[in-house]
């Protein structure tokens, strides 16, 4: 699968949420302060499914933070293993997937694409009150991305000057013809954050 459909992502999220929701023991909502610092609203739900395992599903979005020309939406499901025998207490290790679509403009290069990655996270959950935790996480992972990269100059696409301008009836430019498809793997930091967790039940 080369292009990850947004709808598919939503479907995945729904499956994860409801499929496991039936067996959930403890339910918590969390949000990542670091992402908020990067002006990316985000929220996640975490459920404890076994005596040492919990599952988290998070979603985040981004729209031109700090004037930076970036739009991104993503989904982050993660499975965590808690070392202490009590979920949401102290050390854990998590295996997560991140999936995102992004549209990013920089230095005259326009990136538009999707990314899918797998990463390992280590974290520590600190108990503040019986119902509120603060989680510190950090991790790294391998992310595969596929994007359409274009360059332009003053509203003129300069990527493939040889290709004939194909104009539709409305006068729009078919970007596909003018862009280059790039894909690759990247080893990147993954799931960095300071999360505030509120345990619902």
């Amino acid at each position: 699968m080369i292009c990850i459909n947004k709808r598919l992502l939503t479907a995945l999220m729904m499956i994860v949420l409801f499929g496991i929701g039936a067996k959930a023991q403890l339910l918590a909502v969390k949000t990542n302060a670091l992402y908020w610092a990067g002006l990316s609203p985000n929220a996640s739900i975490e459920m404890v499914t076994k005596s040492r395992i919990s599952v988290e599903v998070g979603a985040f979005g981004n729209n031109k933070p700090y004037g930076y020309d970036l739009k991104m939406t993503g989904l982050q499901p993660q499975v965590k293993y808690w070392f202490n025998g009590r979920p949401m207490t102290r050390e854990f290790v998590g295996l997560g997937i991140i999936g995102a679509t992004y549209h990013w403009d920089e230095h005259g290069i326009n990136h538009k694409g999707d990314a899918l990655g797998l990463g390992l996270t280590f974290g520590y959950a600190l108990k503040i009150t019986p119902r509120i935790n603060v989680e510190f996480t950090a991790g790294a992972g391998q992310i595969y991305f596929h994007e359409l990269r274009k360059t332009y100059d003053d509203d003129k696409w300069t990527t493939n000057p040889d290709v004939e301008k194909a104009e539709t009836l409305t006068g729009m430019v078919d970007e596909e013809k003018y862009g280059d498809h790039y894909q690759g793997w990247n080893f990147m930091p993954f799931n960095l954050g300071v999360h505030f967790v509120y345990i619902l039940k």
Partner: peptide, 8 residues
């Protein structure tokens, strides 16, 4: 405080 977080 965290005892209730145990499964079951």
């Amino acid at each position: 405080d965290t005892q209730y977080r145990l499964m079951g």
